[in-house]
């Protein structure tokens, strides 16, 4: 089992390298189509044409594009993604500071989404067994029509304005200083024993995570429900029933184990959705994550930063897909055959 996981990881890694290079190239070329000069912001108003040329040469912008890409790639391999034009800081340190917040947000959102969708999917399935068109199905369709950033606005209206019980700005309260051990606020504050600050961090995380989870769970519910419907038509379910197993046992022990497989695949494919949502949700909640950083970079035409964050998102997506592959193989014995 361990060997299998290792084999998948190795295969994934081997495939990831050309993927990352190709994707970086796509981003690089697209960004070079830029109609405005991103360097204008870096120069003082009094700069001469000579100064501009010197700056271009310094940043490597006077080279042909393929050469520029190779330089960027070489630097990237050495762990240097260049300097942000607007923040005047290395891209790696900007990303390094923001990444844990986004990962934390995505994982908490995923946990909430699963907590909603597993019972939700089972309920939708049970209701479906009784009637074809159910209120649960219509609810799912309605929920699916609300993107995460609208959830963010709606949740702020409800829990921030009309019934102000939860904070909706920042990652922790202003008075709290994060210890910065792992970068994950919930973990750091817990291991340093600052429970009051920990609950502040949690309450700040709740609304953004809920926004993401609410837009993600209808998709999971649908896949789970249709996985369960497929499983219900399989002979092994009827045979289990004829063996005298209870309906509850059949649903949770037999059908769910099978229905979970397409669900895992779908979560891997749609994780990009979660990250896409995080972009706006982080911006709306002033959450200092990668998504927020990306929006600022895009608004400021900060090419090195955009390029760096794009690379990070690809790495994250590839990592998630690797995890999903391993999970799928561990849960699906049919893939384990030699």
């Amino acid at each position: 089992m361990f060997q299998l996981s290792l084999a998948i990881i190795v295969r994934r890694l081997a495939a990831a390298i050309p993927t990352l290079v190709l994707l970086s190239l796509v981003v690089f070329v697209v960004l070079r189509l830029l109609p405005v000069d991103p360097l204008a912001a870096l120069l003082p108003p009094s700069a001469t044409a000579e100064d501009a040329r010197a700056l271009r040469a310094q940043l490597g912008f006077d080279q042909p594009i393929p050469m520029q890409f190779l330089i960027w790639l070489w630097e990237a391999v050495r762990g240097n993604l260049g300097n942000s034009i607007n923040f005047h800081q290395p891209v790696t340190s900007l990303i390094g500071a923001a990444m844990p917040a986004t990962i934390e947000l995505a994982l908490v959102a995923l946990a909430i989404a699963l907590a909603i969708s597993v019972p939700g999917g089972a309920l939708a399935f049970v209701l479906h067994q009784r009637a074809r068109e159910t209120a649960a199905d219509l609810t799912v369709t309605l929920l699916q029509s609300i993107p995460s950033f609208l959830w963010a606005l709606l949740l702020i209206i409800v829990f921030g304005v009309l019934w102000p019980v939860l904070p909706f700005s920042g990652r922790v309260g202003q008075e709290v200083v994060l210890p910065g051990i792992t970068g994950f606020a919930l973990i750091d504050l817990l291991i340093t024993g600052r429970l009051r600050d920990w609950s502040s961090a949690l309450s700040h995380l709740l609304l953004p995570a809920l926004s993401l989870a609410l837009s993600f769970s209808p998709m999971v519910i649908r896949v789970l429900r249709s996985g369960l419907i497929d499983a219900a038509g399989e002979p092994y379910v009827e045979v289990a029933r004829l063996r005298g197993l209870s309906e509850t046992r059949i649903l949770w022990r037999h059908m769910l184990k099978n229905a979970v497989l397409p669900t895992i695949t779908m979560i891997g494919v749609q994780f990009g959705f979660l990250f896409s949502g995080a972009l706006l949700v982080e911006m709306i909640f002033g959450f200092p994550g990668v998504g927020n950083l990306m929006v600022q970079a895009v608004k400021g035409n900060d090419m090195p930063l955009i390029q760096g964050i794009a690379l990070l998102f690809c790495v994250l997506m590839l990592a998630i897909n690797t995890v999903v592959d391993v999970l799928y193989a561990l849960l699906n014995p049919r893939l384990r055959a030699p």
Binding site: V30, L31, V269, G272, L279, L280, F313, M317
Partner: peptide, 21 residues
């Protein structure tokens, strides 16, 4: 398709818009 799907969709749209205006 796999290559494309390694990007969160909105991130890709954003980058494209930065490029083409």
């Amino acid at each position: 398709v796999d290559l494309w799907m390694s990007f969160p969709p909105v991130v890709l749209s954003l980058i494209l818009l930065v490029g083409v205006g």
